[in-house]
């Protein structure tokens, strides 16, 4: 999750205060990991330094919440580009899991059992996400689904790899 771009995106709707931005960020994107205030303000001042937002001081007094942040054309263009460009479809080829399987085979360890253990860990996480999905809002459900589909993809890989362990063993032990 890119914090600067997400905050910029929120500002693309309307100017806002740091506190409100944090609240909205936490509600939609935080998922139990609230954004620290320090990070909100340091991110906003970097965005200001780079000319992507401007700060309008509203009202008298001290403290950061006097400030309203307004997106600039440069910032808006960046949000637009970010939204329209696809996310890098990373192949994740060098995952920890892959490394474990290959090493297990090289070391003559029970790779199949490791995969079984991984499968049940994945399914356990999928059950938790399914619970969240069944009990939560549509926003929660869609986020949980994103996690579920990714875990499912891993599981497919686990099944395929499990079915070809013998061949893989020959390949890595030559």
């Amino acid at each position: 999750m890119s914090v600067p771009l997400t905050l910029l995106g929120l500002l693309d709707r309307e100017p806002s205060h740091g506190y409100d931005l944090k609240r909205e960020y936490d509600a939609y994107f935080g998922r139990g990991k609230p954004l620290p205030f320090g990070q909100v303000y340091s991110t906003l001042s970097r965005l200001a330094r780079d000319g992507k937002v401007v700060i309008s001081e509203v009202g008298p007094g001290e403290g950061p919440d006097r400030k309203r942040y307004i997106i600039t054309d440069l910032g808006a263009t960046e949000v637009e580009q970010w939204l329209t460009q696809p996310v890098e479809p990373e192949p994740h080829l060098q995952t920890v899991l892959f490394a474990k399987v290959v090493l297990a085979l090289m070391l003559d360890r029970p790779a199949g059992e490791y995969l079984d253990t991984q499968r049940s860990a994945h399914l356990q996480r999928m059950r938790e996400l399914t619970e969240i999905k069944r009990g939560g809002s549509l926003v929660d459900a869609l986020l949980a689904d994103h996690g579920l589909y990714h875990l499912e993809a891993d599981l497919r890989w686990i099944e395929m790899t499990g079915a070809r362990l013998d061949a893989l063993k020959k390949a890595v032990r030559q």
């Binding site: 079984d116 999928m126 059950r127 579920l148 875990l151």
Partner: peptide, 22 residues
Amino acid sequence: EPRVAAYADREVSVRDGRVNAP
């Protein structure tokens, strides 16, 4: 389908006619 199995309390897997229950 793992996403369907995730609705269950737990899963077992069958391989070659035997059950492997984590």
